[in-house]
Amino acid sequence: MLSTMLRYLTTHWEYVGQLTAEHIRIVFLANGLAVVLGLALGIFISKRGREGLAELVLYVAGILLTVPSLALYGILMAILKALGLMSIGIVPVVVALTLYGLLPILRNTTTAVRGIDPAMIEAGRGMGMSETQILWRVRIPLAVPAIMAGLRQAIVMNVGIAAIGAYIGAGGLGQLIFRGIANTRADLVLVGALCVSLLAIGLDVALGVVERLSTPRGLRKGVRG
């Protein structure tokens, strides 16, 4: 079995590489959107006086995450079709992954932005910062590590969910798996699964580095002193 897998990989590396590239593209596209939406929405709902709204948004995002991906694709296909948009292929998958990726980013952004030590806020306000200045100069920089952690979670999670997108023609590494299932070729299923896992692990490690680098130096653990 291992040898057939290896043989497949050596003979089809170009094809596997292309699928990996498709996979990454879908995940990054979706998470790029999720980050923009999540940050904007997260910052918007973490303003003082919007606690109720924040609860609601987080609740809805949480429910979305419990919808099985295949069902969500189905629902989105119907909606997109009704809207006259492209209803199969990459579009519904990207939209679905964006929705899934939203929760970890939203949740981390709001808890971090709202959970800043009140002494920081008081110091900022007492020195004459406006609420907007406090948001951009204090709250958001202090929330960066948590936001990055949320993004990392979202990306790793979406690598797995994106595999199922091949079922509705979005391409990516899921194709190997679905073809393997259709032709009862376990080696193909395993190659696909292995690549998805390796991709998830690789991205997790790489994003861990990015997360550390993007953390303001004073907030990094293990600063001297």
Partner: peptide
């Protein structure tokens, strides 16, 4: 007003990212 008045709070409240 606040920018014209120096203010030191009990918890010090230094910004850790600066």
């Amino acid at each position: 007003l606040r920018r014209r008045i120096g203010y030191a709070i009990q918890e010090i409240g230094l910004f850790p990212h600066m």
